Simulated scan of single mutants.
Amino acid sequence: MSSYAKELQVAQLAVQRAAILTKRVFHEKAKGTVSKDDKSPVTIGDFGAQALIISALKASFPDDEIVAEEEAAQLRQDANLRQTIWDLVKTAQLSDSAAEGLLGGGIKDEETMLTMIDYGNSKGGAKGRIWAIDPIDGTKGFLRGGQYAVCLALMVDGDVKVGVLGCPNLPIDDAAPLSGGMESGQTDEGRGVLFSGVLGQGATSRPLTTGVLATEKSISMRAITDIAAATFCESVEAGHSSHGDQAEIAKLLGITNPSVRMDSQAKYASIARGAGDIYLRLPVSATYQEKIWDHAAGDLIVREAGGAVTDIHGKPLNFSIGRTLADNKGVVAAPAAAHAQVLEVVQEVLAKK
């Protein structure tokens, strides 16, 4: 088996199983709601997906540390919410029995589920093997029926080695162009993609399925001969990235295509397979620090697809400091050949502020 082959297979199967759970949660619990109270669909999906992924990781790599977003204290105090999530986790495991032999024996009871969720309390850092999980990246996209991602990455001594993104509402067709309707109202038909990357081994996509993995295809970023023909991806929420600065950057680059707004690391996945070209996340706060689980998998997949990813100062994203990207500000992701040109304009625009 090639380097990190087992880690990749376990990560793919775990993310796929968790992504199927989130789809079930949306159809059974959400149905277009935009609520995010403590019993909201996103809360249920977050906990359930995190429990499934950590269970799979602990079965194969019991000594690895895990950085994840959720902790189980809320569930220990709320029996009804705990039961709801446990029922979904049981169903997810039973409906995905084809993967069970590779993912271990699964979660047997509610208490084990809570224990698994709480394994995500690592502080991160520059030493050892550490997994980073975002069980539902793109909360509002998930609730709208738009773009969200189930995200998992393995870091070894602070360097990302394996990245997997489950994007249930992206088109299966890698050649499908980005459109302005990506942020809501997506249907299951023809949608659901699992993206993967291993350092030095390239990036792939395959349809999301249940059980065994579908056949993969190699993906790569689109070669840009004229930067003016590029397409931007940006966050839906202005609170996540400065839309005004991005519009000015697009103007200076001569880009006239409308930017496509979507939530989550689906933006990384979209540019990695050439559906878009440039992803900018421009700082909106001097003090905000990005979370490592929001970028680790996407950063690797874009780089393995022929892209370059830095912050606004041109520094690579540093995942070795802890649970945040404390050493970085913002994100600039673009095809390697065009990255320097995009970065120069980003710095020019931000210098005026």
Rank of each mutant, 00 (worst) to 15 (best):
Q93S: 07
N80G: 13
D64V: 03
A68Q: 07
G104Q: 03
D109S: 05
A72I: 07
E65Y: 11
A56Q: 04
D63I: 08
Q74N: 15
L88W: 09
E100D: 11
S95W: 13
E110L: 07
A79Y: 06
S60M: 12
E100G: 14
D63L: 14
D78M: 09
D96T: 10
E71G: 10
L94Q: 15
E110M: 10
I66D: 04
I85T: 05
Q74C: 09
K108S: 12
R82M: 05
M113Q: 12
G106D: 00
K58I: 06
E100H: 15
E69R: 06
K58V: 04
E111A: 05
L81H: 10
L102F: 14
K108F: 04
L103N: 06
Q77H: 08
V89H: 05
I66T: 09
Q83S: 12
D109N: 14
I66F: 08
L103A: 03
E110T: 13
L88P: 03
R76F: 03
K58R: 15
K108L: 07
K108R: 13
M113D: 04
F61M: 09
A92W: 02
N80V: 09
I85N: 07
E65I: 00
S60I: 05
A79W: 04
F61H: 06
L57R: 00
P62L: 02
W86A: 01
G106E: 01
E71L: 13
E69H: 08
E100K: 14
A99L: 12
T112M: 15
L103F: 11
L57N: 00
E69C: 04
A92G: 00
